[in-house]
Each structure stands twice: as structure tokens, then as C-alpha cells.
Design a protein around this nucleic acid. Structure first.
Lengths: 103, 103
DNA sequence: TCAATAGTTCACTAGTTCTGAACCATTGAA
DNA sequence: TTCAATGGTTCAGAACTAGTGAACTATTGA
């Protein structure tokens, strides 16, 4: 199995970030992850329990490849965290402003 | 010919705005429109001259239906302007922050 | 060794985007 | 009034993308 791909800080693009957050479900996932201080598994961060596994997996892949989250394998589950430092370095205040708009 | 559709302020959604701005070409269009104080025609606001007309028209429609721009017919051309007041009222600082990230 | 859990990958369907061709509306000139 | 030019829109087909069930992999605990 190939290791999970994460872009480096400099490879994070604005278009990628906006496009990833343009989906309401993904936005809620990121919001959940921000509200928790520690990492969350994919299923724990899911907004509702009835989302198919494959769909959820797909959304997490998009968030990961856009550089929004960092995913590490921890036993049987994947722990996810928002790449806040990278995002703030690259696009200051962007994440905060977008999340604030999502009330 | 049907009049051009514009959503009311309250119908502007975050997902719609993000998704519209997630395209680099559309982001540049909005940027151009912000830098001009007066309205611009569609062709004038196009980032490069070799974009097919239908493609450009499509991008302007997406921006319009997302609530990002206001389009009015003025003779043979369409004058476009960013709906800054509506956007700031709905999502404070969002537009400014996104445009600032697009350097 | 077996079953349960947490995700991924594959393949298929449904929907979206890009673009050339054809079209419509407005204006200015003959 | 007729014609051509200008500025966009609409339509249709090709290429791409997203959502999801089924099958699969990896880890853990019994």
C-alpha cells in the first residue's frame, strides 16, 4: 500500500483550498477538526453517520491532497488534523475567515 | 430573451462563492473588476484574449449566479461589477482575504 | 485463526465543464 | 431600411469529475 500523499507547504494552491472547501460536507469536516484540539478519525469527523464509507474516504482524500489536512495511520484508524500552520503561512487568515463565514 | 438572473443577497451561499472563486480564471476576472472602479465588459475583464467566447460567457454566468457580480446590459455590451456591498454584508472580509491570498 | 473495525480502491453511473457552431440583440453606416 | 460588425448567449457533443456499492487491505482483539 502506497503511503498517503500530502503536498508540501509550497505546493498548496489557493484554487485547491477553495475548491476543497466549496463542498459543504468537507467544510463541516474541517470545522469539526478545528474545534477539536487533538486528531480525529475519519468516521469521528464525519458530519452525519449515514455517509457511505467510500464517499467519506473520497472527501478526506480531496482535503488531504489539497493540503488542508494531515493524515497519519494510527493502528486501524487514520488520525486527521488541519494543517493550520502551513495554511496560515501560505494564505494568512484565509482559513479563519472562511470558517467564520460558515455560520 | 430572458433577463439575466441574479440571486438576492440572502441567497448568496458560501459554497457558491468558494466554488466560483476556485477557478483561477474566474478569480482573475473578479480581481480585474475590483481593480477598476467602474464596470467592465466581459471581454475587457477577460484575463487573456484567446479564451473562447462561449467559455468566457459560461464563466461570467457562474460568477453572476453565485452572486459575485452584477451584470447589466448597456447597449451591445454587458457591464459587470463586483457585488462588494452584498458580499461584505453576507461574508465579512471574505472577498478581501481571498483576493489578498491570490498574489 | 477468525471476526470485527477502519479505510481504500475499483468500476459504474450521473452530472458538470469546455468549446465550436449557430444564434440573438444593438448599433452605425450606406 | 437594409446590411455588416460587435458583444454575448445558447446548444450539443466530447472530455472530465463526483458519488456510491462491492470487493479488498491492514490492524487488532478474542
Amino acid at each position: 500500500m502506497a503511503p498517503l500523499f500530502h503536498p508540501s507547504r509550497d505546493d498548496i494552491t489557493l484554487a485547491g483550498v477553495l475548491s476543497a472547501l466549496a463542498d459543504p460536507l468537507r467544510l463541516r469536516i474541517v470545522k469539526s477538526l478545528m474545534e477539536q484540539k487533538d486528531c480525529m478519525s475519519c468516521t469521528a469527523a464525519a458530519p452525519c453517520p449515514d455517509i457511505p464509507k467510500s464517499t467519506l474516504s473520497n472527501h478526506f482524500r480531496i482535503l488531504r491532497e489539497a493540503g488542508l489536512i494531515q493524515t497519519t495511520k494510527k493502528g486501524v484508524e487514520h488520525r486527521n488534523a488541519v494543517r493550520e500552520a502551513d495554511l496560515n503561512a501560505r494564505f494568512p487568515k484565509l482559513l479563519k475567515t472562511i470558517l467564520a463565514s460558515a455560520e
